[in-house]
Write a protein that binds this DNA or RNA. Structure first.
Lengths: 151, 151
DNA sequence: CCATAAACTTAAGCCAACTTAACCATTTAG
DNA sequence: CTAAATGGTTAAGTTGGCTTAAGTTTATGG
């Protein structure tokens, strides 16, 4: 199948399989959620970013997405208009707007996470208690490792 | 944090944490890859779908994405123009176009998977061999479970 | 053999999202 | 106290991706 890289290591093989499977599912689910919620992927990514990181300025969001400040400002404007985000002045520097998620935005993101959560629960319904315990421990390790660097 | 649903079960808690973390990373990575490759999320999702499922018709792709046949046809047209997909006639029913991924498209998707793969390898660099072994077994189970139903 | 259906394409129009450029408000530096 | 830099917004213009509607080709059924 992939004769160019020769992944003989079982760890590499498992990661490759999992990455392929999960990527396909992620892509499909996110496109679906984007369509259902009426929000673009960049908007969802912004909401997710703010949900995790807390408030930040417009430029931060732009560079996080890799777009211009103008684009970020316009996109934020739409999200504010829909009630998912809110603007506030930074008391320390009155040039910068502190952007943060509203309650409505928070609920939206939590529903997206819950959808993914539900999917994984369905996955594991066919697994034995021992297998589930194994997965619990592995995902705990992976979550801890994933939450260290932001990159 | 989430006092409304009361997830006392450790399995539920682990899944919730993992889903949140992974979703944020997935979203960011996919938006990034979309921007770098110059392809929309629906285009990437289509390539991924065909990469996994093999050739299929235009309507199948449209319903997979939740868009009209016209939209699917136009999007496929752009991907064909860029050399990622190719059209062929179905010998059984000459009305349907068999859409499939070209070598170029295949390489693109594999690089996307490899990027995700690399990210997970970095994750596990900080883990012990025992922990890695645990993760291998867990991901093997999850991959098998995830590849059963398409939904 | 003709009418209807199915699969896909093309056309016209709409809106979101991006770009650059100009602009306003505030901060910092000389 | 001005001059330059920083952070955001606004404006104008472009493009991509979606919709509906109409058109083309092939298949199917009376």
């Amino acid at each position: 199948m992939t004769p160019d890289t020769l992944p003989t290591n079982p760890f590499t093989t498992v990661l490759r399989d999992w990455a392929g499977t999960f990527m396909r599912r992620s892509m499909h689910d996110l496109v679906q959620f984007s369509r259902d919620s009426g929000l673009s992927m960049t908007q969802l990514s912004t909401l997710m970013h703010l949900y995790h990181q807390g408030a930040c300025g417009v430029s931060d969001i732009g560079s996080h997405l890799g777009v211009s400040n103008a684009a970020a400002s316009q996109m934020i404007d739409r999200l504010v208009g829909q009630g998912y985000l809110e603007r506030a002045e930074d008391p320390g520097d009155r040039r910068v707007r502190q952007i943060s998620v509203t309650g409505k935005g928070r609920r939206l993101i939590e529903s997206a996470i819950a959808a993914r959560h539900r999917w994984m629960e369905e996955l594991t319904d066919s697994l034995s208690p021992d297998q589930q315990q194994l997965i619990i421990e592995a995902l705990t390790l992976l979550t801890q490792a994933a939450n260290q660097p932001i990159t």
